[in-house]
Amino acid sequence: MSFVWPPALLAVLAVPLLFLARWWFNRRRKRTAITVSSVALIRAALPGRSSWKRRIPVALFVAGLVALSGAVARPEATIAVPSNDTSILLAIDVSSSMCSSDVQPNRLTAASKAAHDFVENSDRNTRIGLVTFSGISGLMVPPTTDKGKLLEAIDTLKTARGTAIGQAILTSIDAIAESNPQVARTGVDLGEPDPNQDPAAFQPDTIVVLTDGSNTTGVDPVTAAEQAAARRLRVFTIGFGTTEPAPMVCTADQIGPGPQFGRPGSAFGGGGFRGGRRALDIDEDALTKVADLTGGRYFRAQDAGQLTDVLGDLPQEIGLHKQKTELTVFFVLAAVLLAFTGVGLSLWWNRAPARPRPAPLP
């Protein structure tokens, strides 16, 4: 927690000053005290009060003064709040390894189905963009609330050679910059960081990278993540697939132009593509560093069900972003409640006892 006007915290000094004034008045009262023959008679005449009944109202009133002093300094804290202008850039790996059949019928089909469900179940006000990447990356659909357009693009994903994870992150940054003026495009000199910027505050826009491999071309993913972190953009990464080698199987409409694997034994047949066996080679260290560096998280999904669950749970984290919120009103409410409670208890416990009614005359 921080304060907009820290010097105002000096107002809390009013509390010890009040105690000092109370001590001084008590001392003066002792000097003018009247000598009586029996103190016991005076105590008997006063209503009895236990020590805790005397101290609780004072403690509550003092706590109220402290809270009021803090309110003058305008406290603020960084908290997670729901965002009404969230945009999500979904970057999907369409490299040739997505033809692996370790996830039935193949990884690309399972990823497309999970992305399909993610779009359909997303909030209608959430803007979603689609980036695909293999050896290069490209923006297929800019951030939009048009679910039909997104679903149509997801249904036409095609594979190609190479895996450019870093470039996909940079492409996603530029797509966000087109709709969010607070985010600079890649290659723009951001200058010196703002010393007053809260390091825990993020832009409402988020990047989600789904891949089954490691970066093979283009900019390093961690270098790209540094660009995202400098713009306060979170990147969530998902490693998809198993470690078991499996045949490479893709249908004809999932094959992009150009060679796919470029190794002997690859062949087309039966209206699709069948290649050799391949194991998972996710660079989990790099994906974890990307997520940690940007304030996101890394997830591992080994089958279609886990991938659907991961994407389904993401809106709970993506939909919240951290921002500074002023807490003055809460301090004022606490101060008023404490002070009035203390005064009320004091009046209640110090009320005069009811006088007995005189007996009626005969």
Rank of each mutant, 00 (worst) to 15 (best):
S2T: 15
V4P: 02
V4N: 09
W5L: 13
V12T: 14
V15N: 02
L20T: 02
L20E: 02
W23M: 07
W24T: 03
F25P: 01
R28Y: 00
R29E: 12
V36F: 06
A40K: 08
L41H: 14
A44C: 02
A44N: 08
A45Q: 13
S51L: 11
W52H: 06
R54I: 07
R55V: 04
P57A: 05
L60R: 06
A67W: 06
G70L: 15
A71G: 02
A71W: 07
V72M: 06
T78Y: 00
I79V: 14
V81T: 15
N84C: 12
D85I: 09
S87L: 04
S96E: 13
S96M: 08
S97K: 00
Q104G: 03
L108A: 11
A111T: 14
S112V: 11
K113L: 09
D123E: 13
T126G: 02
T126F: 06
T126I: 13
F133K: 04
I136T: 04
S137A: 15
L139F: 07
L139P: 04
M140V: 12
T145P: 01
G148L: 02
L150T: 03
L150E: 05
L151I: 12
L151T: 11
L157D: 03
L157H: 08
T159A: 00
T159L: 00
A160V: 01
A160L: 00
G162W: 01
A164D: 14
A164Q: 09
I169S: 02
I173F: 05
A175M: 05
A177E: 03
G191E: 06
N196I: 07
P199Y: 11
A200H: 00
Q203E: 13
P204M: 09
D205K: 06
I207C: 10
L210A: 14
L210M: 15
S214V: 01
G218K: 08
G218N: 12
G218S: 12
Q227L: 07
A230H: 13
R232C: 08
R232V: 04
L233R: 12
R234A: 08
F236R: 14
T243M: 10
A252V: 10
Q254H: 01
Q254Y: 01
Q254G: 07
G256C: 14
P259V: 05
G262K: 05
P264C: 04
G265M: 01
A267M: 09
G272E: 07
R278W: 00
D281V: 09
A286S: 12
A286V: 04
L287M: 10
L287C: 01
V290C: 01
T294A: 10
G295A: 13
G295E: 12
G295C: 12
Y298G: 02
R300Q: 14
R300F: 12
A301V: 07
A304E: 15
G305T: 13
L307C: 07
T308V: 09
T308S: 15
D309E: 14
D313C: 05
E317K: 09
E317L: 10
I318P: 09
Q323R: 13
T325M: 07
T328A: 06
L333I: 10
L333C: 06
L337S: 15
L338C: 11
V343L: 13
V343K: 03
S346K: 04
L347D: 11
L347W: 15
L347G: 12
P353W: 08
P356T: 14
L361R: 12
